[in-house]
Amino acid sequence: MIMTAIEEQLQKIKAQNRLGLMTHIVVGYPNLEESRRLVLAMAEAGADFIELQIPFSDPVADGPTLMRANQESLKQGTTVAQAMQLMGELAAATPIPLLFMTYFNIVFRYGVERFCQDAQQAGCAGLIVPDIPIEEEHREHFILRAKQSRLSVIRVISPASTERRLRLNAQHAEGFVYFVSRKGVTGAQANLDAELAQNLQKIRQYISLPIAVGFGISQPEHIVAIKGTADIAVIGSAIAQTYSGAEKGQGIAAVCRFIESLAAVL
């Protein structure tokens, strides 16, 4: 079987005996041109995967930082078509796998099949859509359509997931599994969940694919802490915060320094 771009990247990371790094942007925040530059700069600085979040008006799994970024982007008039176009430009310009993250209404409204086809054509490697559970697959055929377009559907699991749900998700998972480090929404936190290591050990019994850990990861110390138990560290809100917290015009440089500091301890 031919390896997907995500699998190839995972293999490379494994061969280097290190943790992978997935970073994140909200498409169109603060504007499309900055989004484009930011992704290219992050890829340069050491990101292994980047999530391009298509903004949505009601991002239920996102905390205040990313909710604001979604809202700001929509205020700029960002459209799904623009996100597709940006994916196309960026996938052609960087060798690392780029994934779309969004909410199911965006995919549904676009048309599940057409969304998967257009995303794949644009060079997208995988999809992270947190609000489409496997239980609805027989109606929506989201995983099926993604597969037909050779897109990996990244399953999201949480500390609340029951044994039955872990098994169910494991059956359908591709590429890697996204483990939410704590009960809550996205957002940078000072400390990692105290039970994270224990939870990771538990889910390892059910998940054979590499595990990405996200939600609340914001510092090199966090990365050091999950080394050995996780395979990929996901940094989302902390990137947006670093960008918007920098002096005007210095956002991208600040994000690059931040990513380099993380990459140094992977």
């Binding site: 609000d131 489409i132 559970p133 109606r139 609340a160 749900r165 939410v180």
Partner: peptide, 18 residues
């Protein structure tokens, strides 16, 4: 499974499904 014809259902993130 909570479907009223094509409507309804349980389109929630994994964090809430349990």
């Amino acid at each position: 499974t909570g479907h009223f014809g094509q409507f309804g259902g349980r389109y929630a993130p994994e964090m809430l499904l349990p």
